[in-house]
Design a protein around this nucleic acid. Sequence first.
DNA 1: GTTCAGTCCTACAACGTTGTAGGTTCGTAG
DNA 2: CTACGAACCTACAACGTTGTAGGACTGAAC
Lengths: 338, 338
Amino acid sequence: MATTLHDVATLAGVSIKTVSNVVNDYAHIRPSTREKVLKAIAELGYQPNLSARSLRSGRTGVIGLALPELSLSYFAELADAVIRAAERHGLVVLIEQTGGGDRSREIEMLSSPRLQLTDGLLFSPLGMGQDDVELLNVSYPLVLLGERIFGGPTDHVTMRNEEAAKAATTHLIEGGRRRIAVLGVHEGERVGSAGLRLKGHREALDEAGIEFDERLMGRVDRWHRLDGAETMRRIIESGVEFDAVFGLNDTLALGAMRVLQEAGLRVPQDVAVMGFDGLDEAKYSLPTLSTVDPGRDEIAETAVRVLAERIENRGKPYTRERHLTTFEVIARESTAVS
Amino acid sequence: MATTLHDVATLAGVSIKTVSNVVNDYAHIRPSTREKVLKAIAELGYQPNLSARSLRSGRTGVIGLALPELSLSYFAELADAVIRAAERHGLVVLIEQTGGGDRSREIEMLSSPRLQLTDGLLFSPLGMGQDDVELLNVSYPLVLLGERIFGGPTDHVTMRNEEAAKAATTHLIEGGRRRIAVLGVHEGERVGSAGLRLKGHREALDEAGIEFDERLMGRVDRWHRLDGAETMRRIIESGVEFDAVFGLNDTLALGAMRVLQEAGLRVPQDVAVMGFDGLDEAKYSLPTLSTVDPGRDEIAETAVRVLAERIENRGKPYTRERHLTTFEVIARESTAVS
DNA sequence: GTTCAGTCCTACAACGTTGTAGGTTCGTAG
DNA sequence: CTACGAACCTACAACGTTGTAGGACTGAAC
């Protein structure tokens, strides 16, 4: 079996508590004793039992990250960033997938017994909505990510969807585009990535005095590449005129770009294409895809920091905060002005 | 504070052990008692403390997954599949990133105290090599993934790199290609994805009686899209003649495709492009990328199942096994015969 | 009426750790 | 030489759970 404090104590000829103190860097230990203990620890290859430690201390050093699907690049890159950030705080990350927007699974997740192993949760819902805000009242530290729920009882780290989308559309307009198709629109949604980004888009149109055209709205629930491709195809077939495409995320835009080129439309000469998310992939498509980096790394960094703080100060009162990251329009070939 | 067995026991008027028995579905409990207890559990919202349970039982219900980087699509999709598979076994997954092939971090990982929270580990090294085989002798259940180390002391789940790569090259040859550039070659490597896939490639050449040309080898350590692009550019500039490109993974191939098209080379008319990994992305590039699906889902499924078995039968002797998945060449536009 | 197996339940100890309280030693100030 | 605080160390209890051993009851078989 694994060695315990007791084994080390016996070998070093001290009490287990002294060994514990050495392990935990307690100040008042005679150098000679510390040395003896460290030698015994090395000799036995002792490693603390984290279950016991966490039972005693109530802390596990693990945070949960609940997200829809890792196979969506945005979430994979987010998870990567979260794990790196957590590491800097001495935390490890347990990842739970809730499926692509499955509301009931998301709700279930919030009270999952599996969270017991966790000191707190980073929660990125996709299926839950504003009406579910009360469900965020949980007894453990929770930091909300994303744009499905606002004004909830917890800390919230999110991007400036509206402003960022507005900037994206403005970028297209400045390039001389007037008829901008939008991919990934969710019917009637007001809160949520789709709703907010569309709102930003419309603000940009309004400001430029461009009339909104319902026929340019590419409605589709899922935001995978396939959905972008199919929606684009539908719009082309509908015969409606357009000179630009704004994919509400990069994946949609990449799928669309493929279809545009198949249809003989040149990007950016005939149609400019803009994405949203700042995915790595967007750098390598043909042509390279213009996008908006919503501040993904900053989201991860901030979320972990805030969660770590809440864990640190458990029990103490605090005021929930909303953290907004800074975004950046990244202009690439797909929106170049000819 | 959270409620404990003790609270439930008090409310239900039974001993804590009886509550424990109810929770664990012990057989001999009077229906009336069970009901009383369940009611008390519901009333208090009791959830077992997993730290205590794991301290007592030695099991956490968590498995570790150590991989290079989630931002590499292959690993993101692998992690997705592993999490799904683990869920079917009632396990959750703790993900550790070892960085893109950092040998020392990988070695460190194997004895990380963080693994204490884990019943076993799925380990996918990239930097370690055959010489490190002894380091896999660890005291916890370990299942090795990937192709860096063979014949080690643990179970091993891997793909048929050689055969799959051979099939890929054969596919190109059957399309009439004779001068195949290879991207992602690692100098002098024999074991490892690069070495094995290159070996398969050469076997296919040999069988077809095509001479191997060193100048067609695109050497590059990292396998990101950028590396594929740069290596491709180097090969084009070198002036060596070629009519096909085999990216040792999809990401390299996608990066290369971009550069080929920029250089005015048509895919597949002038140059056929073949990838390896069966990434989702390959379905949506322009043109769509032919690839080899090495059986990723099967790898995840098998690895989790084997690990769960080893955990279940801890202590019992077993013979280590090597599991090979089935692969499939997926022909798409990038290798179409004109 | 006694025995016995089975059912149902309980008390206790243990898993390995850390917090608390307290004990001993030591050096220094009085 | 005594007093006293700081430094150093220890014993004990507790975190919440489950395994073990065993007690009390029931009903059936002799």
